[in-house]
């Protein structure tokens, strides 16, 4: 564990708490992509199967349980409790275009040809693109509530912090995980456009609005 990874994980944790806060305080999931949330739940469930047979640490265990539980809870809130506030007509990204290629990539790039390892690879590739339906929705509506942009910024910061973590681990532990690193860099790159608007507008006190 190093400072970059710890801050990254805390940022990830914060992003989920911000998302829950947004839904509870506005009593609405307007502006949140159900498809992205469903993809994250899929990512956590397929990646954390090792909960059943591999012990890393208490920290690791608790975080995994939290990520699985909170992602399923968000799905419940969106699908049942605040269902009327979710508008599927603007959440139109075709997720099959993500799931198919990620499955193919997992078959091509993995560390061992076993079911848990294939699912692990799949989850890594899927996580890297899971934000796309959300960003696509943002593009379509052209604006977002400020709290939603804080959620996305915290999520993006988590990914960005994992990059110095990998550089640090390369030097201190001689450890490199090419699958996670490649997918992680792609994932972080997807946020660049968002970060530009976030830093130049939202943090200056303006509303998140994309140029027409």
């Amino acid at each position: 564990m190093n400072i970059f990874r710890l801050l990254g994980d805390l940022s990830h944790l914060a992003s989920i708490l911000i998302l829950l806060q947004k839904i509870q305080s506005t009593r609405s999931c307007r502006g949140i992509s159900f498809k992205t949330q469903a993809l994250y739940a899929t990512v956590f469930i397929t990646r954390y199967l090792d909960l059943f047979y591999d012990w890393v640490s208490l920290y690791n265990f608790v975080m995994k349980i939290f990520f699985i539980a909170s992602s399923c809870y968000v799905l419940y809130l969106m699908k049942y409790k605040y269902r009327p506030t979710h508008d599927p007509s603007i959440d139109t990204f075709r997720v099959e275009y993500l799931l198919g290629p990620c499955a193919v990539l997992a078959l091509l790039f993995h560390y061992r040809f076993t079911l848990p390892e294939l699912l692990w690879s799949f989850s890594i590739f899927l996580e890297s693109v899971a934000i796309l339906p959300q960003l696509f929705m943002l593009q379509r509506t052209g604006e977002a509530e400020t709290i939603t942009t804080h959620y996305l910024a915290a999520l993006g910061a988590y990914r960005a912090l994992y990059i110095p973590n990998w550089i640090y681990r390369w030097f201190t532990e001689d450890m490199v995980d090419p699958i996670a690193v490649t997918a992680g860099i792609v994932q972080t790159a997807l946020y660049l456009d968002f970060f530009y608007v976030y830093f130049t507008k939202v943090l200056q006190g303006q509303k998140f609005e994309l140029p027409a």
Binding site: D54, Y111, M175
Partner: peptide
Amino acid sequence: PTASPQHDEL
């Protein structure tokens, strides 16, 4: 570097 990393990251 290790060929088959431990999945100790989240």
